[in-house]
Design a protein around this nucleic acid. Sequence first.
DNA 1: TTTAGTGACTAATACGCATTAGGATCACCG
DNA 2: CGGTGATCCTAATGCGTATTAGTCACTAAA
Lengths: 348, 348
Amino acid sequence: MSGKRSPARRPTMKDIARHAGVSQSAVSFALNGRPGVSEDTRDRVRRVAEELGWRPSTAARALSGEGAATVGFVLARPADTLGVDSFFLQLVSGIQEVLAERHLGLLFQVVEDIADECAVYRRWWAEHRVDGVLVVDPRTDDPRPDLLDELGLPAVVIGGAPDDRHPGLSTVWADDAGAMASVVDGLYALGHRRIVHIAGLPGLAHTERRIRTLRAEAGRRGLSEVQSVTTDYSDAEGAAVTRRVLEGPTPPTALIYDNDVMAVAGAATAAELGFSVPADVSVVSWEDSALCRIVKPWLSALSRDSVEFGRTAARELTALLDGGSARAVRVPVPRLIERGSTGVARDA
Amino acid sequence: MSGKRSPARRPTMKDIARHAGVSQSAVSFALNGRPGVSEDTRDRVRRVAEELGWRPSTAARALSGEGAATVGFVLARPADTLGVDSFFLQLVSGIQEVLAERHLGLLFQVVEDIADECAVYRRWWAEHRVDGVLVVDPRTDDPRPDLLDELGLPAVVIGGAPDDRHPGLSTVWADDAGAMASVVDGLYALGHRRIVHIAGLPGLAHTERRIRTLRAEAGRRGLSEVQSVTTDYSDAEGAAVTRRVLEGPTPPTALIYDNDVMAVAGAATAAELGFSVPADVSVVSWEDSALCRIVKPWLSALSRDSVEFGRTAARELTALLDGGSARAVRVPVPRLIERGSTGVARDA
DNA sequence: TTTAGTGACTAATACGCATTAGGATCACCG
DNA sequence: CGGTGATCCTAATGCGTATTAGTCACTAAA
C-alpha cells in the first residue's frame, strides 16, 4: 500500500517497458504491430500491457500526429426548438455504433446558429480536437462547406444534395425529390387536387428541395391550388398553419407535414375544427415515429431508417479519415407507410 | 501564395514567438497571464496570437498535465428505446450551455447497458480523454459510483439520491418523493382512491423512489387499490399496461405515467376503450413537453425545467473540476400543471 | 577472416505546451 | 565600485507516444 487512497495512476509505456525489461520503443513497436521485435517479446509486452490495463493516451497520440481519434457533431438549433425530435437521437445512435467499433469519440455540441457553429469548427480545428465532422441541416446558402474546405477538415454532410464545388466533402442524402413525387402521385391518385405542404425551416436544403419538387409536380399536373408553407418545425406553428389553411375559403383535402410533431398537432387541430381525418382531409407525416401511432387514426408516414442513416454517414466519415476520397451516397428513398390518415378525397 | 492548396497549417506558440521576436516561453507566460513579461510584450504577443488565430492544442495541454478540457456523458439505452425522449436533449442542451462558457467539450456516447458504460469510463480514463463525467439514470444497485471512485474521476450523478458512501461524487437530484406525495394529495382530494402508477424501468433509482413513495402514501391513507407497474418507457408498454388495468374488474380512476410518451399513448388507449378523460379516468404525465399539448384534452403534467437541470449538473461538475468538494444539490420540486386531463373521480 | 547483411533491440528526437531553473541588464545601496 | 535585488527574458525539461537513426551480435557470403 503506497498512499492512503492513491487515485490509481495511469500506466504508461514506460511502465510496460520496465515490467517487461525492454526499451520504451520496443514496447511501441510491439503494440503497434511494427517490425523490429521478436514474436516472443511482442507477446510478452502485449501481456504486460493487458495486465497493467494500459491504453494509449489520446492526448499523446494526437500530439505525435495520429489525430485526435474524435469526430465532431454540432447541432445548431435554439434550445427550445430541440424538444421532441426523434430524428437526431436516432441519427446519433447510428453514428455511435460505427464510431464505437473504431474507438472514435464523438464530440457533441449544441449551439444557437450557424455562425456559432462555424466558430466551433474553427476552434475544434485550431485546438486539434477533432479529425473530422458530421454536418447536419445543410442550407441552400451554406457557409460551412467553404469553411471546412479551407480548414481541410474532413466532413460528411448529412442530408445535403451532392455538391460538385466541394470535392473534399462527402454527402449522404435521401432522395427527397423522389419521395415527394411519389407522395404527390399517391395523393393525386386518390383524387386530391388541393394540397398544402407544411414545410420545415426555410433555407434548409431539404426543405427547399421538397418545396421545389412539389411545385414542379403540381405544375406538371396543372394543379393551381397546391402550396408550401414554411414553419419552425414546432407543434405550435404546425397547428397554426393547419388552422389557417383549413379555415380558408377552399380548404385543402390533403396535408403533408415535414415532421411527426407537426403532423400530430395538425391532425389534432383538424379534428378540433370539425374536419374528419381522413374523410375530410388526408394527413401525411414526413417522419415516422411512435408519435404517429399515438393519435387516432394512425398517421400515414414516410419512414426512413434514421439509425441506418447515421451509420452510413459515420462510415463515410471513417472512410475519409482513412484517406478515402469523398463521394456522394444516396440512402434508400423513404417509403410511405399507409395507415389510417390517408384516403380518397371527399370531392373526388 | 505558398503551395497549391496548403490546407492551412495550425499556428503554434513557436510561430507566435517568431513573429513577436521573443522566446516561446515568453509567449506562454504572456498568454497565460503569468508574471515574467512586461505589459508591452504581453500585449504584443496577444495581438500576434489573435492575428494568427492561435488556439492552444488541447492535446498538448492535456499532455502537460492540464487535463483534457472535456467531460463525458454516456447514455446507456438500447438504440430502440431512444425514440421520442425530450428529456435528454434538453438536459444535454443545458449542460452544453455551461460547458461552452468554459470551452469544455462534451464527449458523448450511447451504449447498450451499464456494463458497457463502465467499460467506456475505464477507457476514457485510461486514454486520458475526459476530466470528469456526468452520470444519468442512477440505479438502486449501481456499480458506477464505486468505479468512478476507484478511478478518481470527478463525477456528478444526475437524478440520484444523495449518497454518503461516495464522498467524491456530487449529486443533483429532484425530490421525486415530494412530487409524488403532492400528486397523490391532489388526486386524493379529487376523490380518487384507485390509482395506478405506470412507472419507468425497474431498478432505476428514481423509479424505485416514486414507487416507494406511492406505496407509503397509499398506506398512510389506507388505500389498498393503488399499485405501480414498471415498463420500459415505450409507448407500446404504456398502452399495453393501460389496457390491462382498465379492462380489469375494478379499473382505476387515475393513472400516473412516468413519462410523456406513455401518458399520451395511455390516454389514447383509454379513449379507445371508451373511457373518457377526465370524466372516467384522470391522467397525469410525469414529464411535460409539447406532446402533452398535442392530444385532447391536454394532459396535466409535472413540469420540471430539464434545461436548468442540465445547467445545474454541469455547474456542479465544473466546480468539482476546479477543486471544489462534492455536494448534493436539490433542484426545485417539479410542479403539477393542471390541464384538462385531471378531474373529480367518477365514483367520488 | 573479413565483409556485407539481417534481426532485435536501444537511444534520440519530435509533437505543442507548461514550467522550472538560469542568465543578462539595470537600478539602487552601501 | 562591488554587491543585492528586481525585472524581463531565454534555455532546458517533462508530459506519453511514434518514429528515425543508430548499435550490437550474429550469420551468410566472399
